[in-house]
């Protein structure tokens, strides 16, 4: 189990990004995290990944504290972040520990097969489309068989069609090994398609606002009434999360979060 216990994160410049975030994510669960800008969604993932340790509280995986990047925790960023000087296959194999060449190649090939890019193994990253590059990034994170995979707005840079495609693809990959997924997104549809549970964050400092369980069977029909109902619950919760004391400058949230989340 991934456990966050009263996580706080204050940056050296005094900005409080997170305050008292307590969350438990069960093994194999998919947790979606949504919220407006400035609510610390990305910071939360960076804290869990060990890239930016918390300034208060404790992150633990199966009881062991996480203070630095951990072999059981993988991460996929908003951008693919492929290494341009490595072929697709070498990018996928980048994080594999020292293994015999043959074993390594077999695992990379199998993983590329799973993301449907086997024939692109020898290609340079610059020759890939945005969606293909992000699939390679997911393959790179999954090939080490992490127990937890963190995804920071992984599909937000893609067009709507590719995005829906990759959401389904991610779910089918998840179904094979059932890692724990924590997906940060600003796309409410995405949060509901993927998540067993949606956490709505409140901004300034980032806190957990509400948690909404999504009890819809998979695969989820984006057009169904039940989906629509879940969506309305999340949107209402987001609306409540934006409701905060007037002393705080709220222009940014109104424009960025309001526009991005509602429309």
């Amino acid at each position: 189990m991934l456990a966050l216990d009263r996580i706080g994160k204050t940056y050296p410049n005094g900005v409080r990004a997170l305050d008292g975030v307590t969350l438990n994510v069960a093994l194999g669960e998919i947790l979606s995290v949504v919220g407006g800008s400035g609510c610390g969604k990305s910071t939360l993932l960076r804290v869990i990944s060990g890239l930016d340790p918390p300034t208060a509280g404790r992150v633990s995986l199966d009881g062991a504290a996480i203070t630095a990047p951990h072999p059981k925790i993988g991460m996929v960023f908003q951008e693919p972040r492929l290494l341009p000087w490595l072929t697709v296959a070498d990018n996928v194999g980048f994080g594999l520990p020292k293994l015999a060449q043959a074993v390594r190649q077999r695992r990379v090939a199998a993983q590329l097969q799973r993301v449907g890019l086997f024939e692109k193994a020898g290609v340079w990253p610059r020759e890939l489309s945005g969606g293909q590059a992000q699939r390679v990034a997911i393959a790179r994170a999954l090939v080490t068989r992490p127990e937890v995979l963190l995804l920071d707005e992984p599909f937000s840079a893609l067009d709507a069609f590719t995005r829906a495609d990759l959401q389904d693809h991610l779910l089918s990959l998840w179904a094979e090994l059932k890692p724990t997924l924590v997906v940060v997104t600003h796309d409410v549809d995405e949060a509901i398609v993927l998540g067993d549970r949606v956490v709505v964050m409140r901004p300034r400092p980032g806190r957990v606002g509400e948690e909404i369980a999504i009890d819809l069977p998979r695969p989820r029909d984006r057009q169904s009434a039940a989906f629509d109902f879940a969506k309305r619950r999340v949107l209402t919760a987001l609306d409540r999360a934006q409701d905060r004391p007037l002393s705080v400058d709220d222009r940014e949230a109104e424009t960025a979060a309001g526009a991005a989340l509602w429309w």
Partner: peptide, 27 residues
């Protein structure tokens, strides 16, 4: 820095970070 973070996520040691990320990036 974003590429360097990939090295950090995969826990590269200092020398490995230089050899596998910095050198090729700088070449």
């Amino acid at each position: 820095r974003k590429i360097v973070e990939i090295g950090r996520i995969f826990r590269l040691s200092g020398p490995a970070m230089i050899r596998r990320i910095l050198l090729p990036a700088v070449l």
